[in-house]
Structures are given as C-alpha cells and as structure tokens.
Amino acid sequence: MPVRVLQLSDTHLTAAHSGNARTDPDHLLRSALEAHRRTGVHADVTVVSGDLADDGSAPACRRLAAALAPLRTPVLAVPGNHDVPDTVAETFPSDLLETQGWRILGIDTSRPGDIHGTIDTAAETNRLDALDERPTVLVLHHPPLSPSAIPAFQLVGGGELVAALRERPYVKALLTGHLHDPFELRTDTGVQILGCPSTLIGFRHTGDDTVIGEGHIVGVRQVTLHDDGTVSSTVVAS
C-alpha cells in the first residue's frame, strides 16, 4: 500500500491571532486544510517543514497541533528559522517515523539568529548510516538546492548533503519549506527536492529575484510514497 503524506510548511502562527480572515495565519491554515480535505485524499502521515510559529511561541505550536488533530495521523515537524527548536519538540517530539516500509526522518537546519540554514552533513549521514536502508524521505526547512540565489534562501552545507546522498540511494526525496514556493528540483542522481507552499503567503523565486504575494500559490503538498520506492506529489492550492 502506498503511504500518503500531507506536507504543510511556513504556517507562521503567532501567540495570538488577529481574526482577520484575509491575513490571519490560523484562518489561512484552516483554508489550506479544507482544500486538502476536499481532494478526498486521506493522509497516513503529516509533516510540517518549519516555521510553524512566526514568533517561536509555544501557544502557536499548540494551536497548530490542535488544527492537525482531526487528521488523526502521526505528525513530524521540524523547526524553521522563526521557530525555537525546543518549543517545536515539546509539541511534536518525533523526528523519525516508520510506516509501511518507508522511513521519514526530520533534520533541524535552523540556527539561532540566522535566516539561512546550516546542516552538519557528517552528523546527519551518521544518523542515516545507523539505520537500515529502507526507502527514506528527509524533511528539512531549508532546501539544499534552491531556485533562489539569495543567501537568505540557501542551506550552508547543502552541497555536501547532495554529494553524500549519492552514496545513499535509498534516500528518495527531500521535503522542504522556507521559500514559500512549490518548486520541484532533482539532484544529479535523481533525488527529488520538493518545496512546499506556505499556508500563509506565496513567494516566487527566480535567481536574485523574489516576488511576494501577487497571487502566488498558498496551500499544501500531497506526497505519495509508492511500494516500488518512487515518490510522486501534487500541490493543492487553498
């Protein structure tokens, strides 16, 4: 049976929400979840690829957990640059899920005070190498390959991660956030790097240019992990 993964990202909830339906992150999160519900796809797992809370607050993380509870799935969430990692872990303690022959592993690429991401590839590959080689998906906030050339939208050490994955072909895809842009890229060995839209506001990145809003997609990504080790996905706009 395939594994259905619902990916959300960059929800940017705050300790208190405004109630303005057009700009309130809680309202827009509910709209994104409703768009997912209307597709009729029932997720087996939910992942959140960072920036759960715009202000790093615990109330925001708890409200996100409450919003996801009706899905009745395990939830794996990783911190983004707006989050406090310990606060995220208090609400979403699991960074490893295994289901139906697949593994989903969360990686924290956030560093205090930085907008860009950083990864210790040696440490993360050591984690991978301590596990068996079943088909694996990594979840991280900052993508190692990016449609943006702007430093704030980069992952320092991303090139080393891509190189390390050449020797670990069981890693099939990376689910990322940060860019608010539903892009799709592949490494030189075919590993998919899937950028998730934000539930709050959409960006479009092209090299040194970033356009915010202007009708760019907000929503979620639905990812299917197939029995043969392949990965497919669909972006669902709110």
Results as ranks from 00 to 15, higher is better:
9 S>D: 02
61 C>M: 12
237 A>H: 01
74 P>W: 10
212 I>G: 00
209 D>R: 10
173 A>W: 05
139 V>E: 06
146 S>G: 03
100 Q>E: 14
138 L>Y: 06
133 E>Y: 04
85 P>D: 08
153 F>A: 08
220 V>E: 07
50 G>K: 09
112 P>R: 15
128 L>I: 09
91 T>N: 08
201 I>C: 07
109 T>Q: 10
11 T>Y: 05
182 P>G: 06
21 A>V: 15
126 N>P: 00
228 D>E: 11
195 G>E: 04
186 R>Q: 15
217 I>M: 14
146 S>D: 06
9 S>Q: 03
214 E>A: 15
49 S>D: 07
88 V>S: 12
87 T>A: 14
36 H>L: 11
226 H>F: 01
104 I>T: 04
189 T>C: 06
86 D>W: 01
230 T>P: 03
95 D>F: 06
195 G>Q: 05
129 D>K: 00
151 P>L: 05
139 V>D: 02
104 I>N: 02
88 V>C: 14
196 C>A: 15
51 D>P: 10
40 G>C: 08
123 A>L: 14
136 T>L: 09
80 G>H: 07
108 D>W: 02
36 H>I: 01
215 G>P: 11
154 Q>K: 11
134 R>Q: 12
107 I>T: 11
146 S>V: 08
81 N>P: 00
77 A>N: 07
168 R>Y: 08
167 E>S: 14
132 D>T: 09
162 V>W: 01
138 L>Q: 07
64 L>P: 00
97 L>F: 13
139 V>W: 04
154 Q>P: 02
51 D>K: 12
